[in-house]
Design a protein around this nucleic acid. Structure first.
Lengths: 239, 239
DNA sequence: ACCTGAACACCGTTCAAGT
DNA sequence: ACCTGAACACCGTTCAAGT
């Protein structure tokens, strides 16, 4: 209590000593700068000024590295507070989803990587607290506990799915494609259809283009309305 | 018109000649048998009894190969008919989503691969027809054209997101994990939480476990209720 | 205890040469 | 026209050896 417990040295050869946490942070930062394809054991080691083998002292393998990065990523999110009051909850849920979407977009490739490496949702205490709060919110809005849990998970899936399918390809377009084509919505591959048996696609071409925020807003609004209907049916709906 | 136009030979050295389409079909089949990680240019070439270089006569590169496989995959789906009649459309949408989910699960790794390779939704005539029909369905239910398009895309995202986040990890569990842990819902990483400030997670542990079908049903029902609310507000909602 | 350097078994892709 | 075989520049991971 009084004395100085022996500390691990924080530097070595002029470089900060590696730690599991530090390696994860470096991986997450690297991901933001260069994208998921560029994150290799070798490139990250080079960035840290260390041999590839050194990383294996802190991380089991590449999968484990990505798991740590995912934990760091999750812990970095502080969600806006949710007010379940009847006149406030819809706007609150909208803001919550918008904030979560922004967090994911700030780290492009994090989800892509987690999915392709089959990372089961990494579990950080901060994340557990957020999940618990969101479930509590849905309960307060009028859902039974089981439905509140399901709604919580669907909220996350809705946001992450939108980012993955809509935002990531536009924020970080693949090499060979024209960004203008990706930005357009409805996309050219739907608009080029001639009218042979495709009447709505043909009419769609005449519509004003959607931006991603409008489409995200639609998805969240539909979800919110669905939750409202479910809540109105009463919490007993949970079987 | 009368004569025999010169045909490309269909066999060569006792092996069916390669075609772009055939290579895509082989890739999709390989994907179903061995999973996305095992699908490499070299392994697919070996499966076809050919040198890796030969594949490059039919596809530009690995990304292109996956694009062809995705097209084959999409063209293979024949959705159930959708009836927009007031008393039928909800059940029809549910069946539509269930069928789409089943189609994706039949080819595990297809989405994972498409996402990680940033494949912009491949466009096959069959898929365009399906999309057009789904938009028409939402219009007939009472949505404006722009909203019907958004609802169509959200339908696909909902289903694919569920498969990707819920089904794939369970249908094809990653090597190091206990399948029982993955099957459990809520998952153990939520249930192990002690009650310190996590009251709903603690109560969640006492609930009967959900199966994936129940959770999928919840998501689709909430979506359906949301669409119903939107439709009731009238097609003029589209700005 | 933690690092380096060399090595192994893989990738995707391309080159030059065969038939 | 379409193939093979060898090669290049990469991977993740491991081994043996340094300090």
């Amino acid at each position: 209590m009084s004395g100085t417990t022996r500390q691990r040295p924080t530097h070595r050869k002029g470089r900060a000593t590696l730690t599991r946490q530090g390696v994860g942070e470096a991986a997450l930062a690297f991901l933001g700068r260069h994208g998921p394809a560029a994150l290799t054991m070798r490139s990250l080691a080079a960035e840290l000024g260390v041999s590839p083998r050194a990383l294996y002292n802190y991380v089991d393998d590449r999968r484990d590295l990505i798991t740590v990065a995912a934990e760091v990523f999750q812990a970095a999110w502080r969600p806006p507070a949710l007010d379940p009051a009847p006149e406030a909850w819809r706007a609150g849920l909208r803001a919550f989803c918008a904030d979560l979407r922004a967090h994911y977009r700030r780290h492009p490739g994090m989800t892509t990587l987690a999915l392709s490496e089959n990372i089961t949702l990494a579990t950080h205490p901060v994340m557990l607290r957020n999940v618990d709060a969101l479930i509590g919110f849905f309960e307060a809005v009028g859902l039974g506990l089981a439905d509140a849990y399901r709604a919580c998970m669907e909220t996350i899936r809705l946001v992450v799915g939108f980012v993955e399918f809509e935002d990531v390809p536009r924020d970080r377009p693949p090499a060979g494609l024209d960004p203008a084509d990706l930005a357009a919505h409805p996309p050219p591959w739907l608009r080029t259809a001639d009218a042979d048996g495709l009447p709505r696609l043909a009419r769609l071409a005449e519509l004003a283009q959607d931006d991603a925020d409008t489409r995200f807003g639609f998805s969240v609004d539909v979800f919110t309305a669905g939750i409202a209907a479910r809540a109105a049916a009463g919490p007993r709906r949970t079987k």
